[in-house]
Amino acid sequence: MSMTAAILTIARITLVRLRRGRALWVGGLIAALPVLFAVAIRLSGGGQSPRETLFGLMQLVLAVMPGLFVASAVGEDIEDRTIAYLWARPVPRGAVLLGKWLALAPIVTLVVLASWSLTEVVGPRGAPSPASLLGLGLGALAACAVGGGLGTIVPRHGMAVSIVYLLFFDLILGAMPVSLANLSVSHHARLIGYEETMALSGVGWLVGLGALWLVIGLRRMRKLEA
């Protein structure tokens, strides 16, 4: 079976399972929190919340969502032992990670962008800027790749490790005033989406970081056992 066909089949199965499970509802609830915050600020007459706060909340959403959807996807199959169904077939091992990422990363991105758009509609600007959508969208895709990679390194605790990495390591790394900050997904998402600068190099870094984490995940998949 070709890599593409395997990826598409696994992505299709993943989407059907997602549609029928509860993860999407839990993800929706999490993504609704910044919107509720913006609404609460507006209703309470406290004025419009600072955009920085709203973007900061979205970065927290970005830290949690890849953990919920992508990081636990491979680990869940290993823990539940359903991975045996995939690996006993002539499927390239990497197709499992790529298929799951292909199905879940766009969903996470859509949910994050929908949340941000609604937050912005209620918030100070009235509408999301294209740069903020680009920054958060690419940031979500790259964060999902980070989650996927970490999920293959620590399959049983992929979700927790992904949240801790994106929250404590990636965000802190991104805040450093040195070039190491370039290794942070949240740093580039912030540069593109909030500060609306360095769009091209930022896009390049996000694509590169996402690809790097996927390659790490793919290499790790080769060694994993059911």
Partner: peptide, 18 residues
């Protein structure tokens, strides 16, 4: 995969087997 029907599961597995 509990969310799938038996037919969906077996069909997917057949596809993945080539």
């Amino acid at each position: 995969w509990d969310e799938l029907t038996a037919l969906e599961l077996v069909t997917a597995m057949a596809e993945l087997a080539g």
